[in-house]
Design a protein around this nucleic acid. Structure first.
Lengths: 192, 192
DNA sequence: GCAGATTACTTTCCATGGAAAGGATCGTCA
DNA sequence: TGACGATCCTTTCCATGGAAAGTAATCTGC
């Protein structure tokens, strides 16, 4: 078995439109989704709490996983996982000579240095990157795309972006821009 | 070492405001962030491609992880991981008698049945849930909150929602509602 | 010029969850 | 009624990545 078919949420729960007084019509209609149901359940069970933050945070989480699943299908066609893709893409977009040290990769891909070591191990074994000591500092390791790695990521990124574009096709360009700005602002204003 | 401090993205990259012609002012200013830099790098390296979908999808991914990290701090104060929290919260919001079968938990929490088994194992060991056979169908297992589990999740959810509310405090109620609607629409219109 | 701190990466161990096989039970239909 | 397939959960094995210790090289201050 791969995945249980999910018999849907148990409780009925009310539709629940916009939960916050100021309602801005963005063109998205008020259809109910899994998060509306979850928020409705919380309203019923804990009327003393305001579950409305879940509308944003829960949807970001669910969308993340839904998108990730679809993106990884493309990576899979190239026998590649998300982690390897991130490393190749980071090296590629850094520009010639497509070489970064492990610390830069760790920072850009937001994983620990240990994870970078393992990702690079796999890519090196596949012949897509090489590792060499940095001149002048023998502690540093420079990871560089091979020609084969460069070709692969150049193909893959094209398909990846086509895929991403398809995934967003339900939103108009204006909606995509509005969403971008709201997400950027949320990221900038996160505490800590 | 816990996490390398990330020496920031290597290339400078242009500021890049809204990439899509129709620009809707949502109040978020045009400050540059990590994704603007990434998109700028791709524009420079692959001017033949349109990297703008990354503005939405990349930010959803980054925000997901940033939020997750902050949410898990609260769970950690209760010696609890994200997976256990999800199970307790799902049982709690289902309402009395706070009992669901493993399949329902699997569907609601979006993990495989195997993962549910392990999460429930841990919660059972901690005395927060019990497992019993469903009457009428000996294959089914009913997972139910104990009183202790109910008390814990009732406290924890309060803190969790306060935390989520703080995380969104940088957005006005109207912006939160607009973001909710856009995310809901994106979720509804995802291909597949 | 060298001891101790720091840096940069690797290694080891562990936690989590997916995939797929396994086991028990149930439903169906001959 | 009993065999076969479907369903529901558990088990096993594996992949991934984090935490923290380990290792080697570099820096700092004296």
């Amino acid at each position: 078995m791969t995945r249980d078919p999910a018999p849907a949420e148990p409780a009925p729960a009310p539709p629940a439109g916009a939960d916050i007084d100021t309602d801005i019509d963005t063109g998205a209609d008020a259809d109910t989704d899994a998060l509306d149901r979850i928020v409705g359940q919380w309203r019923r069970e804990r009327p003393d709490l305001d579950p409305s933050p879940m509308h944003v945070i829960g949807r970001i989480s669910r969308l993340h996983w839904a998108l990730e699943e679809r993106l990884c299908r493309v990576f899979g066609r190239y026998d590649m996982g998300r982690g390897e893709f991130d490393v190749l893409a980071t090296l590629r977009r850094a520009g010639a000579p497509f070489e970064l040290n492990a610390g830069e990769l760790s920072g850009s891909t937001m994983v620990t240095s240990g994870a970078v070591t393992k990702r690079v191990d796999r890519l090196e074994r596949a012949g897509l990157v090489t590792r060499r000591a940095a001149e002048g500092d023998a502690r540093g390791r420079l990871i560089r795309l091979t020609d084969q790695g460069r070709e692969l990521i150049d193909d893959l990124v094209g398909e990846h972006l086509r895929n991403e574009s398809d995934l967003l096709a339900g939103l108009s360009p204006g909606e995509q821009a509005a969403l971008t700005d709201l997400l950027r602002k949320l990221g900038r204003t996160l505490p800590d």
